[in-house]
Simulated assay, not measured.
Amino acid sequence: MSFLSDHELFERIIQRDTSAFELLYDRYERVLYLTALRLTNRAELAEAALLEVFTDLWRAPQTFDIQTTSLRLRLFARAETAARQLLQSA
């Protein structure tokens, strides 16, 4: 299944496919974590941001509008937003 595109994985996540979710997580976990860490300089906030992004993806994938932008860009935008919000509230 690792040969599937982000879009194909996203469509499977909408159908509640946990394998697709795990694969997408494995694909982006490290780089999204590093993005959040770069913004917060705090590992615990970066981890919390990552958790928020993937929790949102699993619970409400329809909020990730990928009609106008790629899922990859949506994930990065969510990670940055979550990191900034967590940093402000810390």
Rank of each mutant, 00 (worst) to 15 (best):
S2D: 15
S2T: 15
F3A: 14
S5W: 01
D6G: 03
D6H: 04
E8L: 01
E8F: 00
L9F: 00
F10L: 02
E11L: 12
E11C: 06
E11D: 07
E11A: 04
R12G: 00
I14Y: 03
Q15G: 00
R16E: 05
T18V: 09
A20N: 00
F21E: 00
F21W: 03
E22S: 09
E22R: 10
L23F: 07
L23G: 05
L23N: 08
L23A: 14
L24S: 01
L24K: 02
Y25N: 03
D26F: 06
D26G: 13
D26Q: 12
Y28L: 05
R30P: 00
R30L: 08
V31P: 03
V31L: 09
V31I: 15
Y33H: 06
L34S: 11
L34G: 02
T35C: 13
A36G: 05
A36I: 04
A36Y: 04
L37F: 15
L37M: 11
R38E: 14
L39I: 06
L39P: 01
L39Y: 08
T40R: 04
N41V: 04
R42F: 07
R42G: 01
L45F: 06
A46Y: 08
E47T: 13
L50M: 14
L50H: 11
V53Q: 11
V53C: 11
F54L: 09
F54T: 11
T55H: 15
D56K: 15
D56W: 10
L57I: 11
L57E: 12
W58R: 11
R59D: 13
R59S: 13
A60N: 14
Q62W: 12
D65V: 08
I66G: 05
T69K: 12
T69P: 01
T69R: 12
L71P: 05
L71N: 02
L71R: 04
L71Q: 05
R72P: 03
L73T: 13
L73A: 10
L75R: 04
A77R: 08
R78H: 07
A79C: 02
E80H: 01
A83I: 01
A83M: 02
Q85I: 09
Q85M: 08
L86V: 01
L87I: 01
Q88K: 15
Q88M: 11
S89I: 13
A90S: 15
A90K: 08
